[in-house]
Structure formats: C-alpha cells, structure tokens
Design a protein around this nucleic acid. Structure first.
Length: 870
RNA sequence: GGGCGGUUAGCUCAGUCGGGAGAGCGCCUGCCUUACACGCAGGAGGCCGCUGGUUCGAGCCCAGCACCGCCCACCA
C-alpha cells in the first residue's frame, strides 16, 4: 500500500459519501463500463429497459426504489461477465410537458395560441434541451449504471420513425380507426384521455328530482340527476321493461321541460327499478351509460356542453354559460315552473382527470381508437404460459382479468406536444392518407394535404419502449443483442397503462415478448402512511436523503424496507444503510492496515467470469476452526444472498448480507482473530483479505460507492470493482461441522459474558475458571474475560457449560444464589413442559419421529443441567 | 358492487414445511477496550385483531366478525 493511501486510511475514521460519490461515478463513466458493445445474443446478454421517467420529472422515491432494484441486478450481472445494457431515456410526456411550458409562457404573458403550433413546439423543444436532462443527472446521483451514451427520448428521430411504423401497421390491419364516440374529455388539458387516465373519487353532489310531464296526460315521470344541465340534451326517458308501474307508458312520449322536446319513453334493462322512481333520463351526448343505451335504441345524440366546458348553441337560452352556471340556471328555471320535485345531498363516485385533476366531462367527439382484442390475445397467452413471469404471482391474475375485458383504446389527444398522428387529409377529394413519411400531394387529385391535428397518447409511444430504444424497426446490432430484455421492475399502477401494452406491442412487432420477468414492487408510503405525493406535500426527496446519508445508504434502506406489501418510508432503514457503509469502511481499515500482503493476491485480477473454481483452496490455509467457520459462513451467505436477489427478494437479500457482515464477520471473527492479525500471521491475512474481497463484491450491486472506494485501497487490485467478477459460492468451502462447533463456542462465550453481568462483576476483572478435557477455544476466555486453568481443586461457584467458575471476591455471592435459583426455576418449567408434551399420547403417536427425538433430547439436557445445579 | 392485501414488541416490518415468536430503530444497564460512539457488551419488552373450527400441536390451515388500505366497476 502506498504511504499516501495508508495515511488516508489511518486518518479517516468515518466514511464520507459526499466526498466519494461523484469522483467514483466519474471513474466508472471514464471506464466505459456501462456502455457495452452490441454483441452476443439476448440469451447470454443481460438487458433492462428503464421505465422512462417523464422528461419533466424529478427523481422521486418510486424512481429511487425502482432504480435501486434494477441497478442491483444490472450490476450483479455485469460483474458476472455478461454483456450488460441498461437502457436509459426519458418520455416526452405529452400533457405534463405541454402544461409545464404553457405555464412558463403564461408567466411571460404569452398564450400558446398566439404563438401558433409550430412556434410552441419549438419552445417545448428548447425547454427540453435546457431542463430535460435533470432527471438523468439525478439517476447518476443514485449510482444507476445505465448506458448514458445510448440515452433515448420518445420523440427523437429514430423513435418517431418507430411510432409511425407501428401506427401504419395497426391501421393497415384495421385495428386503428376513427370514430365519433363518447370519450373522457379533460377540460383541464383540453383533450380526450383514456379510461386508464381517469380516477374515480367520491364526491358529494346534489341529486335533483325533476318532473317530466307525460304527453297527453297529466301524469308526471320523475327522473333523478346530479347534472340537471345535461337534461337539455335528453333524447329519451327509460324504464325497466319489467317495471309494471310504467308498462303502459312505454312507447308513449313525455315532454322535456324548458326545451319542449318530445322524448320517447323506452324500456331498457339497464334501468334499476329500485333506484329513485325507476325512471331514467337518457342523455346520450353527455353520459357514458346513456350513450350506450342511445346507440342501442338509435336515439339522437345532442351535445349541449362544448369542449371548452361551456354550453353550446344547442342549449338555447343557456348557451355561453359554463356548465356550472347552466346548472344553477336550469335548476332555477325548473323551480319556477314547479317541476323541481326534490333536492337531496348525494354521495357518489365521479371521474376526474389523473393529469389535470379536473372533473371529466363525458362528450361525444371524433377520435382515433385502437381495437385491442386481437392484440391482447397473444399477450394473454404468454402470461398464461408463464413465458412472461409476473412476480409476486397474484398480479398475474389481475393482469389476465383486465386483459380479458380489454376495451378499445382512445389514442388521439388534442395537444400540440407529441407524435402528430401520421394521417393526411385531402379536403377537395376527401381522401385520407396514412403513412410513415409526409406525402407530398394527394395521390388522387394532386391537391394539398392537411395533416391530422391530433397527437398520439404518450403511452402509445411508451408501449414500444423496449424495442424502439434498440433501433427497431431497423435490424440493428443492439436489437439483435439485447431484445428481448431480461426483466422489468414496475409499480403496479402502470401494469395496464404500460406493461400490458409493451407485451402486446412486443409480440405484434418484433414478434417476441419484451421481457421474461415482470417484478411488481411495493409502494413506499410517507412516514405517516399516506401516499407520497407532491400535491399533498408528503413526498420525501431522495436527493436530500442522498445528501445527508449517501446514495448507498438510501439504496440499502429502500431495498431493506421493500416488501410485497406497501410499506412506510423508514428512516431507520436508511440509517442502517449508512451505518453499514461506515462499518464496511472501518472493518476494511482494520483489515487493510494490518494484513500482510505476502501471499499471492493475483487471483483478484482474474478476468471476468474466469475465477477458478475452489480458488480459495489454493489461497487459504484452513487449519483453524474459526477460519473454516467464517469462510463457510461467507460462502453460504454468498449462495443465499445471490439466490434471493435472483428471486427479486431484495429485502431479505440485503438484510442477510448485513447480518453476516456485521454480526459474524465483525462482531465475532474480527474480534477472535485480532491477536493473530496484530502478530502479522500470514494465514489470517489471507483469510481476511479473501473474506473482505468477496464481501465487497457481494455488496457492490447494492452499495456500489463505498465498496468501490474501499476497493481502491486494496494494494493488489487492478481495475474497478464494478467489473470485478461477482462471487460464486464455492461449495467446497462449506463446512457445517465447523459452523456447529463455532456456534457452540460463541454460545458459551455469550453465556459467560451474560453471567458476569448478572453477578455484577466489573468489566475490568478477569475471573478464574477450571476447564476439563480440551477446554474451549482460546478466544472464549479472552472475549469473556476469564482465565482458564486445568488444575484447581476449589469448589466451583457455578458450571457454565464445560466451564467451572472458581470463587472470587469480585463475585457477588448473593447475586450468584439468586441467579442460580432463577435458572433452576427456568429449568424446572422447561422440564415440565417437555414432560407434558412427551406424555401426550397423541403427540407421541402422530408427530414425526425427528420432532419427538428433538423433544426427548431437550428434556435430557434440561434434566442434566438441573441435576448439576442441585 | 366485485377483487386483492393488511392487522405480530413502543415504532417500522420479517416470519419458508404447522413443531418453543424474529430484525432494525427506540428503551434500560455498563463501557470513548489501540477498526468503527454511525461503536462494543449485557438486558427488558409480545392475548401474533376478535370468535369459533380442524389438528397430538395453529402467528401459519378453514369459517365468521371487526377495523385499515389498494385496485377494478356504466346505478342516474
């Protein structure tokens, strides 16, 4: 070790992530480790497509968790020597980005309509150039080992080409069509949105009951509505066909108040006779149910509310009012005419836009749709057959249920920012052209063409992310090397919005599943159990956590707190990660500053994937029990942690690695071998360096910065830990006998220490004890501060295992007696419990033999100890 | 309305095959012991939501109930 390194290690008793992280990250980038060549096959390579964050986004806890999981697996596979690609990029996020820029312009006093579409889009691009890489930089802070040289954007040139190819092919197959249909109109973003972007919220409204006079009679039909203003667009009244109260009225008409339109009275099963009066006003233009009923019965569709949320000309004297104003006016008018029968508070669920937060206005409008049935079928089958595996498994059924009920997808959006739909119209001859490139002129009449104004739903382009980012539709080396990708981690909220659509489009276009595994991770809630959300102010900023505790601490903490169920954010887990970083640092200082580097350490520079099997045998000298024990524990921990990571069981994986390192390696092994280490013994140096090297490599995928930093102090290392071979458990080093023996020695040490405390012996005093036969290991006495001797005939105060504690003035005799009495009591109750169990005929007759044997063994041991204590 | 999940130590959460309930944090006691006080050693703390059932044996399996959360759904 260089003198400078030694000095730095000696002087730094605390690991300081803020000093380390940027420097280390730059070294990785410099090394080009995250930028693989496009070689090999997808089967032998490892690739992951990041869920593309919105270009407007800032790293939130969901990204941090998702990123920590992906990076752990990506780094592990890279270290295993697989050609590894983590595709990074951002999503143009139509509505979100357009709103951000619109807001910015508004602050300058500019309305986008003043600028015009072309200029506005230019401004958005300018915004993107300036701010669009924010979140990418934040992923770097986390340590994410993405390929930053292959960064993609869902609106970059190649990507647009892929989107247009997809549109064209789906159109040619007849899946994409244009129709006048009821859509979720979002008055906030001034666009249609899909069913999946709508969330239902409970709202208290007023339920109005209104009398509709029956034509040619003085009878009234009373209907109920929470939206009286929509009555202006009523085109029928419906009753249940089995409802005898109204049977004679079916086929007759009633008269729509305020409008005097004749409304047919129709029968439809959808009407619930139990609700209200059992008569339902039908407004096909403004209610999704009524729309269905209207189409079924061939009713007229009238629109009285426009896309701007104001009443249209159709609304007659209410035209020009906002819907809310019209509601008030209509209610007032009805009241005046004596037709308002009742008003009562009414709680029901109402659709809101997930994007703008505004209440959805169902409207009929001309939109583009994509039929999903044919696309869904193969995507159902691959999941049924587990070719795409969904973990945890309960989400498989959720996915399948949704896919089997899938409905057409409204893919057009009335925005300016996005993929403008590749459809051109020729007004004179009414021709429509669909293509991947802008056509010059109308093929039929040679006239000017006009491109469709609408853009595509952002999710239309996200759906092709795993292959579009690799260069599809071209046959690129990247596509050949890295598609299908290996796995996807995602929050369940985008299972339908994104995951399902990627599977459908993967099968339809490149013709293969986009990933083999989908891991649906938990949601991290705020500390108080509420959702983390910007609007609630409950978000916890991962970057602040990184600033305070370090990226490794956050990564460890997030993985440790993750689960199959939703969990609250745990500061304690992040602090546990921070403490672990520090512990790694300090244990490494102890080892690196005291070890002899006389052994050949060249194995640590073995090339990727070529660590010789059982290499440890040639390096380690395992004569001593504690060395065999720690190496066995290490290798078994490697096996277990690796298996858990591969099974996406991150929480148990990291906690097991923590427990091994902290309790077994540091608390016991290091304390046990300190004398040997200080003496400069070669064997213990070899063992410690081996254990350190493999522990650092094992933890590197989870805590890349601190492990890499420590690695840089290893005198024999060349190159970075990021590309060092990941340890594969060497089963030939498993030694269960050594483990059992060491566990007994450790347990004895514990009991001796506990006994000392109980009988109030000062820490500084060394007690004497007699041991028979071979006696315990040397360290037992040292760590419990006992002096063992073979000869001494004094009567022992107590026996603890094989150790007979000899009298001493420092031992409080009274405490000993009360301690002994307590132990006798414990033993008596244990003996009683075991006897009871063994005298239970059912137990002896039916329990498995080994369980009974175990119970008998316990009983004997307890009896024996009780006999010794008298 | 349908579906899924939860209820375990003061807090946040684990708990595999049904066979003496665990972790981290917090708490108590003692230690700045030449890697680390972001540390070391020792300790206290549990009606496993409630009721019933199956079983030799239930935190775990079954039924019912009570709360809490999430997802899906076209009752005005």
């Amino acid at each position: 070790m260089s003198a400078a390194d030694r000095k730095r290690l000696e002087g730094t008793t605390r690991y300081d992530p803020s000093e380390v992280e940027r420097r280390i990250f730059a070294e990785w980038i410099e090394g080009g480790y995250f930028h693989p060549e496009a070689e090999g096959t997808p089967e032998e390579n490892f690739s992951v497509a990041i869920p593309p964050p919105n270009v407007t986004g800032a790293l939130h806890m969901g990204h941090a968790l998702n990123g920590s999981m992906q990076d752990a697996l990506v780094r592990m596979n890279r270290m295993r020597g697989r050609n590894t690609l983590w595709i990074l990029g951002t999503d143009h996020a139509g509505i979100a980005t357009q709103s951000v820029v619109e807001k910015m312009l508004r602050a300058e006093g500019v309305d986008r309509h003043e600028l015009g579409r072309e200029e506005f889009v230019k401004r958005v691009w300018a915004w993107k150039e300036e701010y669009g890489s924010t979140i990418v930089e934040q992923y770097k802070r986390l340590g994410a080992s993405c390929d930053y040289e292959r960064e993609r954007f869902t609106l970059d040139e190649g990507y647009v080409k892929a989107v247009y190819r997809v549109f064209k092919q789906l159109f040619d197959k007849g899946y994409i069509y244009r129709d006048n249909y009821m859509v979720n109109w979002d008055p906030g973003s001034h666009s249609a949105i899909s069913d999946l972007e709508v969330e239902n919220r409970e709202v208290e409204d007023t339920l109005y009951s209104i009398d509709y006079p029956v034509e040619g009679s003085d009878r009234m039909l009373t209907v109920a509505t929470v939206r009286p203003e929509t009555m202006l667009a009523d085109t029928a009244v419906a009753v249940n066909p089995d409802d005898e109260r109204y049977a004679e009225l079916v086929g007759q008409h009633c008269v729509l108040p305020l409008v005097d339109r004749r409304l047919p009275i129709i029968a439809d099963e959808h009407v619930d006779p139990e609700f209200g009066t059992g008569a339902l006003k039908i407004t096909p233009g403004h209610d999704p149910n009524d729309f269905e009923i209207g189409r079924k019965h061939g009713l007229e569709e009238i629109g009285v509310i426009g896309p701007d949320g104001r009443m249209t000309e159709e609304a007659g004297r209410f035209a020009g009012m906002t819907a809310a104003e019209a509601q008030e006016a209509v209610v007032a008018a009805l009241r005046e005419e004596g037709l308002l029968r009742a008003e009562e508070p009414y709680v029901h669920s109402v659709p809101f836009s997930h994007r703008s937060g505004e209440r959805i206005e169902p409207l009929i409008s001309l939109q583009w749709f994509c039929r999903m049935d044919e696309l869904a079928q193969p995507a159902i089958e691959v999941v049924e057959r587990d070719e795409v595996r969904i973990t945890p498994p309960q989400w498989k059924r959720v996915y399948l249920d949704w896919m089997r009920e899938i409905r057409p997808w409204c893919i057009s959006r009335q925005l300016w920012w996005g993929h403008r739909i590749p459809v051109w119209y020729c007004d004179p001859c009414e021709e429509t052209f669909v293509g991947e490139v802008t056509p010059e002129r109308c093929g039929a009449c040679g006239g000017e063409l006009r491109q469709e104004e609408d853009v595509l739903d952002t999710w239309f382009s996200s759906a092709i992310w795993p292959f579009a980012t690799l260069g599809w539709p071209d046959d690129t080396p990247e596509l050949r090397a890295f598609y299908p990708t290996s796995f996807l981690t995602t929050a369940r909220e985008i299972l339908f919005l994104w995951v399902a659509r990627m599977i459908m489009s993967g099968l339809e276009f490149p013709g293969a599943i986009p990933f083999r595994d989908v891991y649906v991770h938990s949601v991290i809630q705020a500390r108080d159990g509420r959702r983390m959300s910007k609007s609630l102010g409950t978000g916890i900023d991962p970057l602040e956590e990184i600033d305070v505790h370090g990226a490794d601490a956050l990564r460890f903490g997030l993985l440790a707190m993750s689960s199959t169920q939703d969990v609250r954010y745990s500061d304690a887990k992040v602090e546990q990660g921070r403490d672990l970083s520090n512990k790694l640092w300090n244990a490494s200082r102890l080892i690196l500053l005291n070890c002899k580097f006389e052994q050949d350490q060249s194995h640590i520079n073995a090339p990727q994937g070529q660590v010789p099997a059982a290499v440890g045998r040639g390096i380690l000298n395992l004569d001593r029990i504690e060395d065999r024990w720690i190496i066995s524990r290490l290798e078994r921990t490697i096996a277990s942690v690796t298996a858990k990571l591969e099974a996406y069981d991150f929480a148990h994986a990291v906690q097991e690695a923590y427990a091994f390192f902290w309790s077994e390696l540091c608390d016991w092994y290091l304390e046990i071998v300190k004398p040997r280490l200080y003496e400069g013994e070669a064997e213990v140096s070899a063992t410690l360096l081996w254990a350190l090297e493999r522990t650092l490599a094992l933890l590197h995928p989870v805590m890349p910065f601190v492990t890499e930093e420590i690695w840089s102090y290893h005198p024999a290392r060349r190159g970075h830990l990021a590309i060092h071979p990941f340890p594969a458990a060497d089963e030939s080093l498993f030694d269960l006998e050594a483990e059992a023996e060491m566990e007994a020695e450790i347990e004895l040490t514990r009991r001796l220490r506990a006994w000392r405390e109980l009988v109030e012996v000062p820490v500084a005093s060394v007690l004497s004890a007699r041991v028979e036969g071979g006696g315990p290991q040397e360290f037992v006495g040292r760590l419990s501060r006992f002096e063992f001797s073979g000869e001494n005939s004094a009567d022992p105060v107590v026996s603890i295992g094989s150790v007979k504690v000899l009298p001493s003035a420092e031992i409080d005799a009274e405490a000993v007696q009360s301690r002994l009495e307590k132990r006798r009591k414990e033993l008596r109750s244990e003996v009683e419990r075991a006897e009871r169990k063994l005298s239970n005929e059912g137990f002896v007759a039916k329990a498995p033999a080994e369980v009974i044997e175990e119970e008998r063994g316990k009983l004997e041991r307890y009896r024996a100890e009780l006999d010794r204590l008298g």
